[in-house]
Write a protein that binds this DNA or RNA. Structure first.
Length: 338
DNA sequence: CCGGCCTCACTACTTTACTA
DNA sequence: TAGTAAAGTAGTGAGGCCGG
């Protein structure tokens, strides 16, 4: 017998519990169990004024951003719409059925303002990493590095570096202002690349194998190979020197923050540069010094980094030994990415 | 109680990138 | 090149505190 909807949308009162409408296996339930934002408000206290209009709860904004990252919702406007409509997203964000979702521009303003000033996302990243370490997901023996991401800048909107007049008011976007603030006059003259994006001058014109060149950044990841846990992230312009420098930064930062130094460092052939090998030699030498009693940590002192290179493809998680060779301090053979 | 001041979110508009 | 989608931002108004 064919049924028919009762058409009950005109009811005034409902008995409704949001909790009952989120499946037990829902991804957000798993994330919710692992996400602890109890210290978030204390961390951000200094970045909010004690007077004035009360802000949107920062925990709500962070939870909404987590939803966006997990479900690939890159648009903040769309994220607000999705959280407004999706019951599971509302549940995860601790919003009731009638609670208002923040305006999209609030995200934009906070991202460029207090979230950046407070380095909120690195704090959040480290909090999650600490939980991963507490759960035994990080071994700290082998780290892998790799990078690259496209910039949000059109290939067409580029110009030769020396031909751009940055005083032109038409170019006074936030990205351009930040670029100019980062360079003094002298450095500006030296730093100009052959082709530069007028939309986002800090990105770099990058030749991609098998496709057209584009403006890009490098999102450099340092990954623990045991379970593929990302240990650190550093964004740089997309050129090799900056990527190699960022690797040093990330390894040293992880060492300083978590007292973890890898015995092996794995990357593609391009990481086997002379400066990288020199850095490794320095570390080996300093670790010998340390063994004489200047450094207390057994883990960091006994583990001079061995650099392994030659991976054909960017890595998502663990290293792929079949495509790897170890340089062990000898000059890196010149190969084109494996 | 009221006005001034400060902070913050929202509205409305502009800018930019992408696609057909 | 026009249409669309998304981000960025100046202007505006609301909320809260404080002093007169």
């Amino acid at each position: 017998m064919m049924g028919q909807l009762p058409g009950g949308q005109q009811r005034l009162f409902y008995s409704f519990n949001l909790e009952d409408h989120v499946p037990a296996q829902h991804l957000l339930r798993s994330i919710d169990q692992c996400l602890d934002l109890s210290d978030l408000r204390a961390y951000l206290t200094d970045f909010y004024s004690p007077i004035g209009c009360p802000s949107i709860d920062p925990e709500l904004m962070v939870r909404m951003l987590v939803v966006g990252y997990c479900y690939g919702i890159r648009s903040e406007r769309r994220l607000c719409e999705e959280v407004h409509l999706n019951l599971a997203y509302r549940w995860f964000c601790r919003l009731g059925l009638e609670d208002e979702v923040p305006n999209h521009s609030t995200f934009s303003k906070n991202r460029h303002g207090r979230f950046r000033d407070s380095d909120l996302f690195r704090w959040l990243f480290n909090e999650v990493l600490r939980r991963c370490m507490a759960a035994g997901l990080v071994k700290g023996e082998g780290f892998a590095v790799d990078a690259s991401i496209k910039a949000d800048a059109s290939r067409q909107r580029g110009a030769a570096g020396g031909e751009v007049d940055w005083r032109d008011p038409a170019l006074s976007s936030r990205a351009v202002r930040e670029y100019l603030e980062a360079l003094d006059e002298e450095a500006l003259a030296e730093a100009l690349p052959k082709k530069i994006s007028l939309t986002d001058p800090q990105s770099r014109w990058t030749a991609a194998p098998g496709g057209p060149a584009y403006f890009a950044y490098s999102t450099n990841y340092l990954i623990d190979t045991e379970h593929g846990v990302i240990m650190d992230v550093e964004a740089t312009p997309a050129h090799r020197t900056a990527e190699v420098d960022s690797t040093k930064t990330m390894v040293e930062r992880v060492e300083a923050q978590f007292d973890l130094t890898p015995e092996r460092l794995i990357g593609d052939t391009a990481y086997g540069t002379a400066p990288m090998l020199a850095w490794r030699s320095e570390r080996r030498a300093s670790s010998r010094t340390c063994r004489c009693g200047t450094r207390p940590s057994a883990r960091t002192t006994a583990s001079p980094v061995t650099i392994s290179t030659g991976i054909r493809r960017p890595m998502n998680t663990a290293a792929q030994p079949a495509n790897r060779y170890e340089v062990n301090g000898a000059p890196s053979p010149r190969k084109d990415h494996g």
